[in-house]
Structure formats: structure tokens, C-alpha cells
Design a protein around this nucleic acid. Structure first.
Length: 891
RNA sequence: GCCGGGAUGGCGGAACUGGUAGACGCGCCUGACUCAAAAUCAGGUUCUGGAAACGGAGUGUGGGUUCGAUUCCCUCUCUCGGCACCA
């Protein structure tokens, strides 16, 4: 064993051993319908999956964190005797490749594949226990052909269908922009005002699975509650009522037809309080009205220019304009104005809402602003409204107005509680054919068409004669040409006739291939189903998928808590309904890791875009009691920049730390140890350069302690280790060793708090250093402590432990070792220390036999001098004894 | 705006089921080694009064429940993630 710890050499040695032995290649042990004997004997499979990365060019710290967590759990499970699969792949389609093409003129395919090659090397340098033989990239035709194949199956079943959708249109570049490419309503490259366009798109009917996606959340016991809650709120199932408001006579005349305006409401109990209707700018009625009124047309155009992002809609000023149309109240027949309002979205419900100012905060504000009548029809369950009736002229909104209460002022439906009112009114509406009870989801169908090049082609052909024709299965995959270079002016596929000029599969006449590609969420919605069968070229999945699925542990960023996870659950259920998989849910356990944060420094130049500076290039100075920050200019002269707080590491904020530098300087083990030690996995992690040094120091200390121990000659842990023959100090170290093992086993296996597992081993190492007993018994106890430290750290810092294991005298390989066993005999303690409080304040401590009864504990506590000086025994009211923890004397 | 998290020393964090607040690490201070520095080792380090013994205060804010609250309940503030075309 070398005296010095040389990470590069140690890591190369371990990785070489794993590679030569193909240590991480997973085997199914699967033959036909039943598992073979070997698999039955083992403790079962463990499919451990970390979210696959987008190949952006270089690994970032979030990746290191994500993949280290997965690796620790994989290696731990392996030591516990599980058959482990830990695969890796690439989420390889997407916008950044097109942006790189625009910036550098390099083809997205080339850029992406080069990035994959580089990042793969980086991942391998981290020593992850990955089965690279199952690697997949979503941009490979052998992968995305199954996107296309399944899309066609969905289309046959009506799950995939076509309707129009709204996109951001840059009129100068003649191109569709993603939301992130629209900044303050303008195109990111052109700076011109963005327009909305309604174009035909393909949708997946995820709302048809709404009830199941919601209901099955309950079965996901291994998921964090907060993620399930977020998904449930996102799905947003609500029971309500559809109400049809008949057109008023003069509106019937204007429209030239007799019809109703349909709305959806969850508060039909407030129907008598409805005083107006509000419709979305895209609503057909709004469009009809705009032809008669130029002012309205201007307003509608303005609304349609506005953002459709929920966050923007919710915060913008609520504006509206009357259409001039009227409808009548279904029960009272009163005339009601129809308004166009910018806060009503066409995509939700019916694109129209009934306005009940007295009982809805948004309607209240709208009515006040536009002088619309306010009528209260629900009173609180108890008492009266605190600030008077909401329809008082000067009333301010208060939340009680929106509560469920008792109806009044509602004709025959007065005096009913919420549920009863909902029921009675909806039945009455149904009888009049003017409405019905209905379930509505907040969840919308999933639009998957993208007017972009770097994605999976949608396998359809448009023929003038035959309409929309699916590409025949035999012709799949529709291969994306890889030599095109987007220039920002629309999808280059549209300019490539060799791609879109095809004969119609049905009639053979000249036809046009669909040039839209699929949302990249499609690619990531089933990749976990492909890993088990990655080498199957003739089917999307095979029986192996049912051996490995569900994923036993899924690990990924909290930012994916809703969309990616919901789409994956949906896709899995669709595949189940097509008899392709048997599982209902793809992921049994989910660990949502927090983001990796770093400081952000920036400066706003007099013109142009804000410039961001890497924290490494920032110097700090105290000036007038305030911190000032400086970056260096091109000539080396410092200039002041502003500090913008903490944010996730990102290219755009220039606050990333390159893990490569870390690995080169300290080695992969230090990088892994730091990431696991600094924060528990679910919390966000603040970057700290000093912390890395600390991790490195710990590994060197561990190395040194083992070195000093083995220089005295190797000794077996099993010799001289019988509790009876050990000194108190020796017994104490053995107890610490097995207490540490107990903690680490629980911390990694159940709690997934790697930081506390590591600190437990640090404490053990500190105890070993203090112990320093060179007697044969002492050295055997030390040997045991160091072996357990090495084994229990091996999932976290596998390379250095690989070498230390040999150094400790073993000829076996660490990677083949099982998790060590806890020796319960070593844990036994004769006496324990209890805290003693007086009136809840800590006043002293006592030591009692560990099996002392309550009376003894009580007596010892009351006799303790540091305690009884705070009271006179006669005044003791109560003594609370918490077994094995504390005594509280109440006086 | 809505939905979901978070807030504990100079810093990252620990305290798992309501029972010793600050484990472990970083940083800093003192000392040892050294011509010196780095590295390493030993000791100290929540604030505050005190020479010490021993007290007082203290887990974002304000309130509540309890013998006892970082932990449970309510209020507010700040902050992070998501909001459907970033992935």
C-alpha cells in the first residue's frame, strides 16, 4: 500500500477491474415465463434509474448529484444481494441543438453526437456502476421508430387526434418560437412583437386517463407526498356543471341563428348571482362580434397578442369589453351582457365563464371596474358577512364571500346548502335541457406537434386525394435527415423536398410528408421501458420489460415533478392498454433531488443584453460596511458588478461549476463524497469550494489511518474479538463500529440521507484515531472498525474503497462483497445517561443502569445535586419520566 | 397570481416518532512541527454576563397547544421549484 493517496491511480485501477470483469452488465436470469433458479434464490431485481441527461455538451453539477445518488443506491442494493440494472441514455432531441446550429452553423446531429461522446467519457470517469451495453439515444432511428409506431397505434385507438392549437409566431423570421424564446412579448433574435397563430396540431388524449392518473397516485407509496399533491392539483379534477345560456332575441337576429352560450362552473349554486358572461378572445362568438365593432376587434387582437402562459395571464391586468351580444338567464330569463375578457382562456372548459361578482374574487374586481351589477345569493353558514353584503357599493372583497354557504335570493332554490343547491340546480337545468352535471379536468390534452427540425418526425402523409394517411409500418422509421442546419427561419424540413415529397401510400399519387416533429417529452415518456430491451430491433419492448419494471428507484430533479412524470405515467398506461407492458405505474419509488445552486453576478450594460459573470472570476471587497463585487475586464481592470443572489447553475446565468475540473484536481471519489455530504438529496445544494477540500481531506485521512494500521502488520478482525475478553475501551469502539453500521444501513437503505451516513463514518474514524490500541485485541477491534468503514463507504467512494479493501489484507474484490452484518452483542450497553429537566429547562444529567425501572430513575433524578437545588422536594407537582431519554420535574 | 417546497451559529447542515438544539464538515482562533510556507497534528469556536463555577437568551416573524416545540396548529415575511413549446 502506498503511503500517499493518489486519486488518479486509484480510480484507474478500480475502473479497470470493473471494466475487465464487466461488473455492471445486468443479466435478466430470464428464460421464457419463469425466472431461473439463480434469480429465485437472490433477493430479486432492482431497477435503479436516474433521469437521462440532455447532451448539452458538458456534464454539470446537477448531473453529478443525480447520478451519484443513483449509483450509491445501486451499489448498496447490489451489496444487499439484489440483481441490479442501472442503465444510461441520452435525451438527445431538442432545442439547444438547433440553437447551436444557428450560432455556429454545425448540424444538430453532429453537435449532439459529439456531445454524447464527450459526456459519456465524463460519466465513465465518475465510476458509475452503469450497464453501458444498454445505452440508448433518442435521436437514433432505432429508438424513435417506436415513438412513430406507438403514435400510429394511438391514432388507431383515437388517443392521438388532430385539432388546432395556438403557437408563438415570429413574423420576421417566419418561424414558430418556444415560450422561452419569447422575451417580453418579442422574438429573442428579431426583437419584433410576437403574434399568435392557430395551426393544426396533433394531441394525445391524456384527459381520458385523468381519473386513473389521479386515482393511482394513492398506490404510489414510494413517492414524496408533495409530488403527488402537485400532480393531483395539476390534474385538477373538479365536479361542476355545464350551463347553457340561451341567446337573447336581438343576438339571435344578429347571429342569424338560435343557440346557447355554454359555460362550465364549479359554483352553479351561485347561478342566480350571475350578472354577466365572459368569453375568451378566441371564442367563436367573440370573433363574430369583432366583425361588427372595430374597437372590439382591436381589443381582441390585443388579447391574442398577449401571452398564453398561465403565470402571465394570472398576473396581468384584467381587462374586458362588451361584445354587444346578450344571453338570457336560464331560470329568470333576465338579459345578461356577454363580455370578452383577457383572463378567460379558450383552452380550459368551454372558453367561457359566468360572472358572479358577489362570490368570485376575479369577477368581483371585473364587475367593480366595469360597473356591472353585483348580486349576493349565498350567505355564510353562520352569522352574516363581516363587512356587510358584497353587493354594497363600496364593499371590499373578503374571502368569506367566496365560501360555500346557504343560498338565498335564488327563487325556488333558496335556503339550500352548497351540495343540495348544486344538485337541485343541475337537475333543474338538465330537465330544461339547459345544462348537466359534469366532471372537468384542469389537465389539458397533450399537444405534441412541434414546428421544428431536431425531433422525431410524425409519421403521417398528407394526400390531396386520400387525406391524412399513416406511414405504413413497413416503411418505419421515417428517418430524419441528419445533414440539415437550421438557420432560425423556420423548420428546414419544409425546405427539403427530398424529405417531404413522397408518393401517397394509398393511391400512389404525389403527396406531402408531415414536417412537424414530436415534442421531446414523447421521447422521455418511455425510455425507461426501452432499457430492458434496448437491443431488440424488431419490437418496441419484449418480455424483459415485465421482469425489470416497475423501476424500483427513480431519481431526478424536482423540476420534473409534474410534466415528465405525468406524461411517463400516461404513456405507460397507454402501452398497458395496448398489451405491451403489464405494469400500471412505471416508478415505484421516486427521489426528487434538489437543484444545485450557485451565486449569480451580473451587469447591465448601457445597451444590449445583461452580462453574467462566473463566480470564479469575482472578487469581493468591503466598502463602507457593504460588500462590493468586482469582475475583471478584458484588459484585467476590475469593474463593479451586482450580486443577484443564488440560482440554479445554468449556462445563461454563467454560474456553473465544471465537474471536470473537480474530477481532475481531486478525483471522482472526492466529487462524489462532496455532493453526497453537503446536503440531503431532496434539498437544494449550495455550491462551496471549501467544502470540496474537506471531502478530499477526509479521504486522505481515511487512507492514512488504514496505512498506519496495516504498516503494523495485517491482523484479522475475527481474532481476539470476543466481547468478554475485551477492555472497556475496546468494547466501546466495537459498540461505536456497530452503531455506525446500524446508522449507515438505515440512512442509505431507508432514509436516503447520505450526508448523515457519511458523518456517522466520520465519527467512527475519529473514534479509531483516538483509540490507538496496539495490543492484539486492540488491533483486531481496529481492523473490524476499518473494514466496516470501508464497506459502508464503498457505495459512495467506490474507487478508494476498492484499494483499501485489498490493503486491509483481503484477496477478494470489494465489488463482490455483501453488506456487513450488525453484531447485536456489540451494541449492548450497561448504563445509559439521561437528561434531567426542571420545568422543561435542562439542569443536569444522571447515569443509570440501562434496565433501571422508572422508580429508580425518578429517585436518582430527584437526588441529583445539580437538579434539586432548583426546587424544594415538597413542591414537586409532577415528575415525567421518558424511558431511556429524560426526566422532567415540574414544580 | 396559483400550486408545491424551504428558512437552524460566520457557512453547509444534524436533531428520524414532541424529549440534551448546533452532530459531522467548512471557516476562523490558539498551539505544535518548520528557516519559512503549505500539508499535518492537538485544543477552542451559537450569542451574551462571568476569571471560573454557573446563569440568561436563542431554530425567519408574531401568536397558540403542551410538563416540554426546530418538530404540531394559525398569521405574516423572504426565498426556491412548477405553471403546459427549456429540458
Amino acid at each position: 500500500m502506498d503511503e500517499r493517496y493518489e486519486p488518479a491511480a486509484v480510480e484507474q485501477l478500480a475502473q479497470q477491474h470493473w471494466n475487465e470483469n464487466r461488473s455492471f452488465v445486468a443479466r435478466e436470469n430470464f428464460s421464457g415465463q419463469s425466472l431461473d433458479a439463480e434469480a429465485q434464490l437472490s433477493k430479486g431485481k432492482f431497477y435503479c434509474l436516474s433521469m437521462f441527461p440532455y447532451p448539452s455538451g458538458r456534464l454539470h453539477m446537477g448531473h453529478v448529484r443525480n447520478y451519484t445518488i443513483g449509483d450509491v443506491l445501486s451499489r448498496f442494493a447490489r451489496m444487499q444481494g439484489r440483481n441490479v440494472l442501472q442503465p444510461m441514455g441520452w435525451d438527445a432531441f431538442g432545442l439547444p441543438a438547433e440553437n447551436a446550429a444557428i450560432a455556429n452553423g454545425v448540424a444538430p446531429a453532429k453537435w449532439t453526437r459529439e456531445n454524447i461522446a464527450y459526456m459519456k467519457k465524463q460519466l465513465q470517469a465518475l465510476g458509475l456502476a452503469i450497464d453501458w451495453e444498454r445505452e440508448i439515444a433518442t435521436c437514433d432511428p432505432s429508438y424513435y421508430r417506436w415513438n412513430q409506431w406507438l403514435f400510429l397505434r394511438m391514432r388507431e385507438k383515437g388517443i392521438a387526434y388532430k385539432k388546432t392549437g395556438i403557437v408563438n409566431w415570429d413574423p420576421l423570421d417566419q418561424t414558430v418560437l418556444a415560450n422561452e424564446q419569447v422575451i417580453d412579448g418579442r422574438g429573442w433574435r428579431t426583437g419584433v412583437l410576437i403574434e399568435k397563430r392557430e395551426i393544426p396540431m396533433y394531441y394525445l388524449n391524456i384527459t381520458a386517463y385523468g381519473d386513473e392518473l389521479l386515482g393511482d397516485l394513492a398506490s404510489l407509496e414510494g413517492w414524496p407526498e408533495r409530488v403527488k399533491l402537485m400532480q393531483a392539483n395539476w390534474i385538477g379534477r373538479s365536479t361542476g356543471c355545464e350551463v347553457n345560456f340561451p341567446y337573447a332575441p336581438q343576438t339571435r337576429e344578429l347571429m342569424g341563428k338560435d343557440a346557447t352560450l355554454k359555460v362550465f362552473t364549479t359554483r352553479v349554486d351561485t347561478l342566480y348571482g350571475a350578472t354577466f358572461l365572459a368569453i375568451a378572445a378566441e371564442h367563436p362568438l367573440a370573433l363574430a362580434a369583432s366583425t361588427l365593432d372595430d374597437g372590439l376587434k382591436t381589443f381582441i387582437d390585443e388579447c391574442r397578442r398577449g401571452s398564453t402562459m398561465e403565470a402571465d395571464v394570472a398576473t396581468m391586468e384584467k381587462k374586458g369589453r362588451p361584445t354587444g351580444y346578450h344571453v338570457t338567464h336560464p331560470f329568470t330569463g333576465k338579459l345578461m351582457q356577454v363580455w370578452v375578457a383577457n383572463y378567460v382562456l379558450m383552452g380550459y372548459g368551454e372558453g367561457a365563464v359566468m360572472g358572479v361578482p358577489a362570490h368570485d374574487e376575479r369577477d368581483f374586481a371585473f364587475a367593480r371596474k366595469n360597473n356591472i351589477k353585483i348580486i349576493s345569493v349565498v350567505r355564510p353558514l353562520q352569522g352574516n358577512y363581516e363587512k356587510g353584503s358584497p353587493d354594497a357599493i363600496n364593499a371590499e372583497w373578503c374571502d368569506t364571500y367566496g365560501e360555500h354557504g346557504i343560498t338565498f335570493n335564488s327563487g325556488e332554490f333558496s335556503g339550500l346548502a352548497f351540495e343540495a343547491a348544486m344538485e337541485a340546480i343541475s337537475i333543474a337545468l338538465e330537465q330544461r335541457n339547459l345544462g348537466r352535471k359534469r366532471v372537468q379536468f384542469r389537465l389539458r390534452d397533450w399537444g405534441i406537434s412541434r414546428q421544428r427540425y431536431w425531433g422525431c418526425p410524425i409519421p403521417l402523409i398528407h394526400c390531396e386525394h386520400c387525406g391524412e394517411v399513416p406511414v405504413p409500418e413497413i416503411q418505419l422509421p421515417v428517418v430524419l435527415p441528419e445533414d440539415l442546419v437550421p438557420d432560425g427561419s423556420g423548420n428546414p424540413l419544409n425546405k427539403t423536398p427530398s424529405f417531404w415529397q413522397v408518393p401517397c401510400p394509398t393511391c400512389g399519387k404525389s403527396a406531402r410528408r408531415e414536417t412537424d416533429t414530436m415534442d421531446t417529452f414523447v421521447d422521455s415518456s418511455w425510455y425507461f421501458l426501452r432499457f430492458p430491451c434496448a437491443n431488440n430491433l424488431s419490437a418496441m419492448v419484449d418480455d424483459r420489460v415485465n421482469y425489470w419494471l416497475p423501476v424500483d428507484q427513480y431519481i431526478g430533479g424536482i423540476e420534473h415533478a409534474i410534466l415528465h412524470l405525468l406524461y411517463s405515467r400516461f404513456w405507460t398506461k397507454v402501452m398497458r392498454d395496448l398489451d405491451l407492458v403489464t405494469v400500471n405505474e412505471p416508478f415505484s419509488k421516486l427521489l426528487t433531488q434538489g437543484m444545485v445552486l450557485n451565486h449569480i453576478y451580473s451587469q447591465q450594460p448601457s445597451e444590449g443584453r445583461r452580462a453574467y459573470f462566473n463566480p470564479l472570476d469575482i472578487t469581493e471587497e468591503q466598502l463602507d460596511g457593504q460588500k462590493n463585487y468586482f469582475a475583471k475586464g478584458l484588459g484585467g481592470e476590475p469593474f463593479r458588478v451586482s450580486y443577484d443572489g443564488l440560482g440554479t447553475m445554468s449556462k445563461s446565468k454563467n454560474n456553473g461549476v465544471d465537474p471536470q475540473i473537480l474530477v481532475e484536481k481531486y478525483g471522482a471519489d472526492t466529487a462524489r463524497l462532496f455532493m453526497m455530504f453537503t446536503a440531503p438529496p431532496e434539498q437544494s445544494l449550495e455550491w462551496s469550494d471549501e467544502g470540496v477540500q474537506g471531502a478530499y481531506r477526509f479521504i486522505r485521512r481515511l487512507w492514512k489511518v488504514v496505512y498506519e494500521h496495516v504498516s503494523l502488520g495485517v491482523i484479522s478482525a475475527h481474532i481476539h474479538n470476543h466481547t468478554g475478553s475485551l477492555s472497556t475501551a475496546q468494547q466501546n469502539l466495537r459498540r461505536t463500529t456497530h452503531q455506525t453500521l446500524t446508522r449507515v444501513t438505515d440512512d442509505i437503505g431507508r432514509r436516503r440521507t447520505f450526508n448523515t451516513a457519511i458523518s456517522a463514518v466520520m465519527e467512527l474514524l475519529n473514534a479509531v484515531i483516538k483509540f490507538d490500541d496496539r495490543s492484539p485485541q486492540g488491533r483486531a477491534v481496529t481492523q473490524e472498525a476499518l473494514e466496516i468503514a470501508t464497506l459502508s463507504l464503498s457505495p459512495i467512494i467506490p474507487h478508494v474503497c476498492h484499494t483499501l479493501w485489498y490493503s486491509l489484507g483481503h484477496s477478494t474484490h470489494l465489488i463482490d462483497m455483501p453488506w456487513p452484518k450488525i453484531d447485536n452483542a456489540a451494541l449492548i450497553q450497561d448504563s445509559i445517561t439521561l437528561m434531567v429537566q426542571v420545568n422543561g429547562r435542562l439542569r443536569g444529567q444522571i447515569t443509570v443502569a440501562s434496565d433501571a425501572d422508572e422508580a429508580t430513575v425518578r429517585a436518582t433524578a430527584l437526588a441529583e445535586p445539580s437538579v434539586c437545588k432548583f426546587f424544594s422536594t415538597a413542591l414537586v407537582k409532577k415528575v415525567i419520566v421518558v424511558p431511556r431519554k429524560l426526566v422532567n420535574v415540574v414544580v
